[in-house]
C-alpha cells in the first residue's frame, strides 16, 4: 500500500523537476559552463554575483531548482537503469541509490544554500 501512496508523489516530483530543469538549466549552463569560460561575454564581477547569490529569494529559488532537479534525475535514471541495462531485478538497490542520492543531495544543497552562503 505504501508503494501506491508514494508513487504519485515521485511522479509529481519528476514532472515538476523536468519542467524546472527545462526552463532554468540551459540558460545557466550556457552562461557559466560555456559563454563565460570561452570569454564570449565577460563573467559577472564578484560584487554583483555575490549580491545576487546572497539575496534570500535567489537562494530559495536555487534550492527549489536543486531539489526538484535531483528528484527528476532520480526518477528518470532509475528507469534508465531498469530498461537500458535490464536491471529490473536489482530494483531495491537502484531505488536506494537513486532516491537516496536525491535525498542526500537535497540535504547538502539545503545546507549550502541556506546555512553556508
Amino acid at each position: 500500500m505504501a508503494k501506491h501512496r508514494v508513487e504519485p508523489v515521485l511522479w509529481l516530483l519528476f514532472s515538476a523537476g523536468g519542467l524546472v530543469a527545462a526552463l532554468m538549466v540551459p540558460v545557466l549552463l550556457l552562461l557559466f559552463g560555456v559563454v563565460f569560460p570561452l570569454g564570449w561575454v565577460a563573467a559577472p564581477d564578484y560584487a554583483h554575483l555575490s549580491a545576487v547569490v546572497r539575496f534570500p529569494l535567489t537562494r530559495l529559488a536555487l534550492l527549489g531548482v536543486c531539489v526538484l532537479a535531483l528528484f527528476h534525475w532520480a526518477h528518470r535514471f532509475k528507469y534508465t537503469l531498469y530498461d537500458g541495462l535490464q536491471l529490473q531485478r536489482q530494483h531495491a538497490a537502484i531505488n536506494a541509490f537513486c532516491y537516496g542520492g536525491a535525498v542526500i543531495g537535497s540535504a547538502i544543497a539545503a545546507y549550502l544554500l541556506l546555512l553556508y552562503v
Binding site: 549552463l29 532537479a69 528518470r76 549550502l112 552562503v117
Partner: peptide
C-alpha cells in the same frame, strides 16, 4: 533518459559556483 545525468551534474556545478562565491 540520460539527459537526467547531466541535469544532476548541473546541480553539482551550480553548488560549486555558489560555494565559491
Amino acid at each position: 533518459e540520460l539527459s537526467s545525468v547531466f541535469v544532476a551534474w548541473f546541480v553539482v556545478f551550480l553548488l560549486l559556483l555558489v560555494v565559491s562565491v
